[in-house]
Design a protein around this nucleic acid. Sequence first.
DNA 1: TTACGTGCAAAGCGTTTGCAAGAGG
DNA 2: CCTCTTGCAAACGCTTTGCACGTAA
Lengths: 147, 147
Amino acid sequence: MGSSSKSRTARSTAPQASAGRVLGRATRQRRALLAIIAREARPLSPYELHRLTHREIPSISQSTVYRNLRALEQAGEICAVSIPGQTSRYERAKVADRHRHHFHCRECDRVYDLKGCPGGLRRLLPRGFTLEEHTIVLSGKCEACVN
Amino acid sequence: MGSSSKSRTARSTAPQASAGRVLGRATRQRRALLAIIAREARPLSPYELHRLTHREIPSISQSTVYRNLRALEQAGEICAVSIPGQTSRYERAKVADRHRHHFHCRECDRVYDLKGCPGGLRRLLPRGFTLEEHTIVLSGKCEACVN
DNA sequence: TTACGTGCAAAGCGTTTGCAAGAGG
DNA sequence: CCTCTTGCAAACGCTTTGCACGTAA
């Protein structure tokens, strides 16, 4: 894609990872959050993450979860997964950076990573438009919910 | 908050006309709203819709816009377009029922209808999963914002 | 020690709802 | 007329923020 950032805000920091900012202190809360996201196979919502971290650190607040999600995202450690009509879920950046798409189960409301990507999206583009990114979300029932 | 709407079954209604409920009274507000949605080429947000209807009916409230959007959607007159990380936009059902995908301009934040659909999505599906629907959102810059 | 991170409470923001007044059919 | 719809304000759910204290480095 673009080799130089346009006239927008220059985010010139570490060129290697995805995002710019550097992660700050490794607090107990931040470590717990990251550990849970790392061990989980599917993207988790802030609500789920607060519930899970709360088991280890009962005093953890929702704001801490939100603040850390933002910090971790900016640091390129995690990545937000947006499902239409749903609140964002978060997963490890290593997983997300492989350019994943997602499946949303309408039964259990869980989100799963998918492999692969159908090409040929550029031909959907009207003339004069530029394509920077795309999102594909399949929905239906996951294996556990098909009966 | 875990769950959203689920366990719907009667999805197999008429492919084009009303989705269920019957539309009630044709109030000034409702007519204005529908007229604006009908004449506009792209899906509009509740905010935009309130702003536009407000020009014709200065007394119109936001709640009226929201209530009518819901009523019109249930009546099958309009259709919600969900863009990840964005509030829903609304467009005429006749347009939406043609199975459209959408383009979101990151510059001006507008949403456009696209034509066509890339096939081959079913091969992204894990074994045992069933596919009921899919959403594709391209993003970048629209013609007006490429500079 | 000294910023950065935390918990708490309050504020924001978009959306929904209760209620009494208003208007469509 | 009777009921549906409206406008207002308050409630709501999720997310962000101000503040003083706590804690990693």
